[in-house]
Nucleic acid binder design. Structure first.
Lengths: 398, 398
DNA sequence: CCTATTAATTCAACTAACTTGAATATTCAA
DNA sequence: TTGAATATTCAAGTTAGTTGAATTAATAGG
């Protein structure tokens, strides 16, 4: 499946400079809106004139709209600008083994539309076909004048033929050697970004969630297994082969529970839906979806509670590990788990004291629950596209 | 001590574009040398003319020298260029609790000079004073016409008042609240980069070591404790507060050996010089330096061998963790440990099979020993400066 | 051996996009 | 009411890139 393409560092010229500056301005508007030219010039280090030209262009393209004059002390009141939600949108598509989800998100990160389609099989051909249908439905019914920036497709990792691909339920079959970006670009007829679920979820939280203002944070994603999305200084971390963040198969307890990957004591065997299902199955309770878990939780099922208590230990240890390795501003928990369960889990954590995250004057808690809910990955797909549109990056991929 | 300054994304203009392009060209020359203008134009995506102008400038500034014509088939043979080792140099200074090391490295990564100065105390004033002396010695005796690009100062982390600052021997006292960059810039009168030892070591291996061609790798650094340097897609990873890579205090064995940081089962309590010293002390053997360890190893000391065998387990687990979280091209082991001991440790590893690093057709081993030896951190300080000089980065820090 | 082809480099003209300084508009303070 | 402060626009100037033609030097083929 997908491997990250090596980056070739390329030079810049006037044209690329303009592209960069457009994204810089757009990104600052996103963070500061509503905001005027002079302020943007100060933030971006560009001249007022340059900002002015760029704003004219962005407004022309429908990305920005005027937002009145701001009277602030002496002087000509600044003419403010903000993102134009109706100006552009992005499509997010999440592929799971048994179903696909679609989401349409506008430039401001507002969700315009979501959908779910069950999959009979998850072969590339079927998935591409369903993707096209989701796209068509979204575009015909919920786009009105906005330009579609592209699509973000979210697939469960790991990608490629690696040591933990045998891990079972969460993996797609028949995708070996498929160039998924090309497949979806062909099927959808637009620019496509392919990313794993945890990373997409992280970006979703940054575009419109609890990570709004954060540049460096980690997202622990409950899918079938467990993934980690890492945002470092505003850049998504992918690793050399697109498989960074495979936290589910990190050994937390040497010699612990056997895992499908062959290791013993993997985090995923304690803290994941797979683990919960296994635990509950021993008590004769079948769990197939997040809703099942939600119902059990609301009913106060003792087996689920026991699982939660047990999961909190390895999860706390894992969060300590994340803090010491990535030094993030915060760690976010989210994904296909009911909010109440995540909240319970968070309150049950006992985070290690020996961590670089223990410091005076923290302004975010060490752990937060994600705000994007269970559709977070599909939203994240769209968010990836939005994020890309507002994140300047001169070194190109080739 | 140092905290990373938040990055403000700034716009570009013709001048900044030129700076970027200079670094792009310099970086490609470094990788491909010797190489001609036309080839550089193809790689960099710039026009031949632009490359030509930039090369003229770089040659004028002494960074590049002609390297003859390369006859390759038809056409005018390309006039090749390569880095001019004598054109520029960088100073590396490593601060340890009891001593400081200096290294002078030229643009090609060749070591021109190294030195060691014992410290009576490690207060900021003393350290700054010794740094100045090291700098003066290096400049007066070993610089001949080269320009000095700056200094890289390497200090043991973690920085700031965090949960594991009480961890003991490896930490500098009296540095709370000190702006170390300003301190050293004032003392040395040149641009200064401050970084932790593991990161510096990683950069050293990239500039002139086993990580030459790699863009994404991790370096496990044996200092007093244990650190992790992370290079992701050519960018050094620092974390939100400059403390990323604090691997020594990641819990590998829940409920295991108590650590000075308060946790139990930290990696550092098994695989580090601290751990070795503690283990050998039980047998009545005092170990104070890497040389002591080297002698014991050469003598085949059974206590040391026992320690090595014991350390290999947690270290293997840690490397599996690194692989699954960062998905690097390879993991490098190095630092203040004799090469023979590192080699022994590497051969004693039993790496987990459940890892994204297990894949067919690997072209690097999963684990390598660093090539820069025990001075790796000081060299790394200088390498950081060199690396910075050849790495384009338009978004500036402020 | 000569000539056509190929490829690298330079020359000269052109262009995009930024900066600068002056001009204009609008508000607040005295 | 007037002057200072601030935002924006206007117009000219600058930097550094691109483009296409000219030059140089090598090989391939007749």
């Amino acid at each position: 499946m997908k491997f990250t393409t090596p980056r070739r560092i390329v030079g810049s010229n006037a044209e690329r400079t303009r592209l960069h500056n457009r994204q810089v301005v757009l990104g600052h508007v996103r963070e500061q809106q509503p905001v005027g030219r002079a302020e943007l010039a100060r933030i971006s280090g560009l001249s007022t004139q340059a900002v002015s030209n760029i704003i004219a262009e962005l407004a022309e393209d429908g990305f920005l709209v005027e937002a009145g004059r701001q009277v602030a002390g002496r002087g000509l009141p600044a003419l403010q600008y903000r993102l134009n939600g109706d100006g552009a949108a992005a499509l997010g598509i999440e592929v799971r083994p048994d179903a696909m989800f679609g989401a349409l998100v506008n430039l401001e990160g507002e969700t315009l539309f979501t959908t779910r389609v069950a999959l009979s099989d998850n072969s590339p051909a079927t998935v591409a076909h369903v993707a096209r249908a989701i796209s068509a439905g979204a575009v015909s019914g919920h786009i009105s004048g906005q330009q579609l920036l592209g699509a973000g497709v979210v697939m469960p990792g790991p990608f490629g033929n690696v040591g933990i691909s045998g891990a079972g339920q969460s993996v797609l079959q028949g995708w070996e050697g498929v160039d998924s970006v090309a497949l979806f670009e062909e099927a959808l007829g637009m620019a496509v970004i392919v990313e794993n679920d945890a990373t997409a979820a992280a970006v979703a939280e940054r575009v419109r969630g609890v990570a709004s203002g954060l540049r460096t944070f980690c997202f622990v994603y409950f899918g079938a297994g467990l993934g980690l999305g890492v945002m470092a200084d505003g850049e998504v971390q992918r690793g050399a082969f697109g498989n960074a963040g495979e936290i589910g198969h990190v050994v937390m307890t040497p010699g612990g529970r056997p895992c499908a990957c062959g290791n013993k004591g993997c985090l995923e065997t304690y803290a994941s839906r797979i683990a919960a299902r296994a635990q509950l199955a021993l008590a004769g309770i079948a769990v197939n979806s997040a809703s099942d878990i939600e119902q059990l939780y609301e009913a106060g099922d003792p087996h689920l509670m026991a699982w939660l208590d047990e999961a909190a230990g390895p999860l706390s240890q894992a969060i300590g590990m994340i803090e010491n390795l990535f030094d993030p501003e915060t760690v976010i928990l989210g994904g296909a788990m009911p909010d109440a369960v995540l909240d319970h889990l968070i309150s049950a954590l006992s985070l290690p004291g020996g961590s670089v995250a223990v410091r005076p004057g923290r302004d975010t808690p060490r752990v937060l629950r994600g705000a994007c809910g269970r559709l977070t990955a599909a939203l994240g797909g769209a968010a990836l596209v939005i994020h890309d549109a507002v994140t300047p990056r001169i070194a190109e991929r080739t």
